[in-house]
């Protein structure tokens, strides 16, 4: 599915690249393609709509996914204007490859929470339950920011988790909880909130050690450099920060 979206993006951006260049670059009109961490799905979709409303004639297109996958796609030349990742480490992959047009800036902060299906059928109470072989556990894979944050939390708690599946982005983990296929998972607090009543969140003391800063940067190969800068500014503006706070993100 992600591959399809990417293929579509490639085609679309390929068509768009021919006509951008001049006018679009200076005015910031046209299409802004944003590659953003899966955990930003709801809040960025909303920010994108707001941005479009504030900038008539601009269309914001998103590609949400695991930050590490997105960083990889950008490295392979995927036509993106902006990258918003869920950890400085994944952003650094793009920066190190010379992929960014400006220094990345942190625009939000997120912390992990234990997610259980509504009613908490397995009676999960804390991180220690993640070591239980009988409990079905979903975690993010280690290379995804939420997986790296989870590892910090488990290390701090001295717990060796026994996951049944390592998912490619935090939304895939959340889906497994929503469907009741797993008893517990570690996701971001904002994901628990976005799932509404289907998922319950349980805080844990080590969460303070598993906080992720979210960096954002316009990209060097942006087809729409002005639009990219404008979107980054919008995310960092008071209005953008208010929307992020409402979704449960903390200020960086």
């Amino acid at each position: 599915m992600r591959a399809w979206a990417l293929a579509a993006l490639l085609v679309v951006a390929g068509c768009g690249a021919a006509e951008s260049g001049g006018a679009a670059d200076t005015t910031g009109d046209g299409r802004v393609t944003v590659f953003a961490a899966a955990s930003l799905t709801e809040v960025f979709t909303r920010l994108g709509e707001d941005f479009e409303a504030a900038h008539p004639g601009v269309e914001v297109v998103f590609n949400f996914g695991g930050s590490s996958a997105l960083a990889q796609q950008i490295g392979q030349g995927a036509p993106a204007d902006v990258f918003a990742s869920a950890s400085p480490a994944t952003m650094a992959q793009v920066v190190d490859a010379g992929g960014t047009a400006a220094e990345p800036v942190a625009f939000a902060r997120n912390r992990l929470e234990i997610a259980v299906p509504a009613g908490n059928p397995a009676g999960i109470t804390g991180l220690a339950d993640f070591a239980d072989a009988d409990a079905k556990i979903a975690l993010c894979a280690g290379q995804v920011p939420c997986g790296a944050a989870a590892k910090r939390a488990f290390d701090a708690a001295g717990v060796t988790p026994r996951p049944d599946t390592l998912e490619q982005d935090v939304k895939a983990v959340l889906t497994k909880v929503r469907l009741g296929e797993v008893d517990a998972a570690l996701v971001y607090r904002t994901d628990v909130r976005s799932a509404g009543g289907e998922v319950e969140g349980i805080g844990f003391p080590e969460a303070d050690l598993a906080v992720n800063d979210y960096p954002i940067a316009p990209l060097a190969k942006a087809g729409n450099a002005a639009g990219a800068r404008a979107f980054v500014e919008y995310v960092r503006s008071d209005r953008g920060q208010a929307v992020l706070a409402e979704a449960g993100f903390e200020a960086p």
Binding site: A141, P163, D164, T165, L166, E167, Q168, K176
Partner: peptide, 11 residues
């Protein structure tokens, strides 16, 4: 990956 998930050695 959707039904069986991803765990080394298992799926």
């Amino acid at each position: 990956i959707t039904f069986a998930g991803n765990f080394p050695g298992e799926t």
